[in-house]
Design a protein around this nucleic acid. Sequence first.
DNA 1: TTATATGCAAAGATTTTGCACCGAT
DNA 2: ATCGGTGCAAAATCTTTGCATATAA
Lengths: 163, 163
Amino acid sequence: MAQLAVDVTGRWHDGDVSDPAELLRSSGFRATPQRQMVLQVLREAGDRHLTADDVWRAVNQHYPSFNRSTTYRVLELFSAMGLVQQTRLGDGVAHFEAVDHPDRHHHLVCVRCGTVQNVPADVLREISVRLAERHSFHIGSVDLMIQGECAACRRAASVTRRA
Amino acid sequence: MAQLAVDVTGRWHDGDVSDPAELLRSSGFRATPQRQMVLQVLREAGDRHLTADDVWRAVNQHYPSFNRSTTYRVLELFSAMGLVQQTRLGDGVAHFEAVDHPDRHHHLVCVRCGTVQNVPADVLREISVRLAERHSFHIGSVDLMIQGECAACRRAASVTRRA
DNA sequence: TTATATGCAAAGATTTTGCACCGAT
DNA sequence: ATCGGTGCAAAATCTTTGCATATAA
């Protein structure tokens, strides 16, 4: 995946995250219906992480001409703007969720059954800030993934497969 | 990516991580040259994370019939065995590294230039153990990725693109 | 008006799968 | 001799790109 195909130089939003259209314009981008609908879908999803395809299907339902490639372009833009956080859960597909706080929750992924448990992110806040300071790094998002066996699978001691 | 197509039930290694062949056999798997070479390549890479393709190219050089699909199958097995950790750098490709400690280091990924800084993982040990206990989760690997802007890019305030 | 963003179609990249054969045990 | 593992080839999945058109500002 190419990173930052979009030029966001000096165009980061600094304000009103509640008004998508204004947010886009104030960052120097156009408030197209596609972009607004993508953001809405992501926000309505709450802390469920959607794949690009999930997003596409949701928007496409109300807006049939909405194209897959636009999905990727919009999601890339939002990632660059810091509106959306991209998460990888080890399943080879990118997952996206709206960012309200820079770090919302993290993931325990079971390598047996693929179940994902969310855990609140505040435990990491202090540590990640300290890390960032030490490396003069400006945090966009924090993403912790712990892989292992969930309680059920440990007990079961039997293999569960995932499609 | 399908998870656990391989049956690893009750066959986790408990011992001598230094002898790849014995390690595999004691876990109930066959010690094929392909598997041993993949492990060797990953171990020689130290803390550089290799993509599946990197691994394939390295092994293929000494073993021309070595096939890409075998690469994926072996890496999946090693992940399930906990020998190899899959890390995410936000570039859409899976990266792998040999695991000696359950958590070795984590990553600060610059969304501008793609630079990756490694940071020692011990800061997270306590927290991840606590999290795992709370969720009755058996930790296989811990993977923290912080995305944002590196010091250089913040200063530059100009966009750097990545191929 | 005009540069940005989208739709479309095609290609690219990565990963998975079915099947016949091979080889570690 | 078995059955697990590999090679091969093909497909599936996910994502990116070029270009003409549409549209937000």
